[in-house]
């Protein structure tokens, strides 16, 4: 129980919630505003993280060049996925996006020469040498920590991630209020009607998919920096479902519902570690990990059945159909 009181643990939870906020913001843009059933969001996170790590380790690039390229690669991934598939019916599109994210994970797992394979980023460099991609980032984090006078690296990361998340949330909010965002919402509502008003629905959906993918790429960068090591298993479809849950929890079609959803999700996810009372105390700690995911699943079910507009969503504007 001692961890419950430790600031370090909650800093960590806060960092993860910030990363999930960015990931889920991409999904909110794609689904909440453009109606795209993207179930492969985690793939773009993987593309962002791997592109950055590979460029730094194998090509010796500066982190500050490799990182934006990682984000760009994720956006390009969105374009590549969207170009052939956005014309499909929504149920097919949903299945294809899951398949896409699994293809990306399989490739990362099996192309050892490129990605380090299932051993993860440690095996990116020469054999027998543990590769590191976050040297420059760690330096930057140290400088920030000293400058801000913060007690720990995690606390510094907390500040950095949430600053980034807030900046991205604000930009998304601003851009979605423009006529561009209005067209996007009209396409979510009725693609045929939007087309009959002269809107190129395909182009808008493609933009939403690519922008959402870029946001996932940013989340991937922070994920990579926070954990200083990752492997293909970190990008299992489960993470996409977490992002969906966050968007649903917060509420559909509302930008600032995303951080609320992410924080609530973080509390549910981390808080369930401390279920020291019955009936949870009957289970061993490794079993409680399963319990935690059962609770997540039940929350998704409860949301879909009982509150399809989410905690903050407006029923008149966007509900799950």
């Amino acid at each position: 129980m001692s961890t419950l009181a430790s600031a370090g643990f909650w800093e960590f939870v806060g960092v993860v919630a910030g990363i999930y906020t960015i990931l889920a913001l991409g999904l909110q843009l794609q689904f909440g505003f453009a109606g795209l059933l993207n179930f492969g969001q985690v793939a773009f996170m993987a593309i962002g993280a791997y592109t950055m790590a590979i460029l730094v380790v194998k090509e010796g690039w500066s982190t500050w060049l490799a990182a934006p390229l990682g984000v760009a690669a994720a956006a390009v991934g969105g374009l590549v996925l969207g170009l052939p598939t956005l014309r499909l019916r929504s149920d097919y599109f949903a299945i294809v996006t899951i398949a896409f994210s699994e293809i990306v994970r399989y490739v990362a797992m099996n192309e050892d020469a490129l990605t380090g394979g299932s051993q993860g980023t440690i095996a990116l460099g020469p054999v027998g040498q543990a590769a590191q991609y976050n040297g420059q980032w760690a330096q930057f984090q140290h400088r920030m920590q000293a400058w801000l006078g913060l007690p720990s690296a995690d606390a510094t990361m907390l500040v950095i991630v949430w600053l980034a998340a807030l900046a991205l949330l604000a930009s998304a909010w601003a851009v979605l209020r423009t006529p561009w965002g209005r067209v996007l919402r009209s396409i979510r509502e009725d693609e045929d009607a939007a087309a009959s008003l002269g809107k190129n629905a395909f182009a808008y959906k493609l933009q939403a998919l690519a922008l959402g993918a870029a946001l996932a790429g940013v989340a991937g960068l922070f994920y990579a920096w926070q954990f200083s090591y990752f492997s293909p298993d970190d990008f299992a479809p489960l993470l996409t479902f977490f992002a969906w849950m966050i968007v649903l929890l917060g509420g559909l079609g509302r930008v600032f519902a995303v951080p609320v959803g992410a924080v609530v999700f973080g509390f549910i996810f981390a808080g369930t570690r401390f279920l020291g009372f019955a009936p949870f105390s009957w289970f061993a700690s490794d079993q409680r990990a399963y319990l935690r995911l059962i609770i997540i699943g039940l929350v998704i079910l409860a949301l879909v059945v009982l509150r399809p507009q989410g905690l903050l969503g407006k029923r008149e504007e966007m509900v799950l159909e």
Partner: peptide
């Protein structure tokens, strides 16, 4: 009964999949 559409049903089945899988592991 609530006339849930494709998205609701699909998401509900994802939630259910999580619950079932973890219950089996448990």
């Amino acid at each position: 009964a609530r006339r849930a559409g494709f998205m609701s049903l699909f998401l509900a089945s994802i939630g259910l999949a999580l619950v079932l899988r973890q219950a089996l592991l448990l």
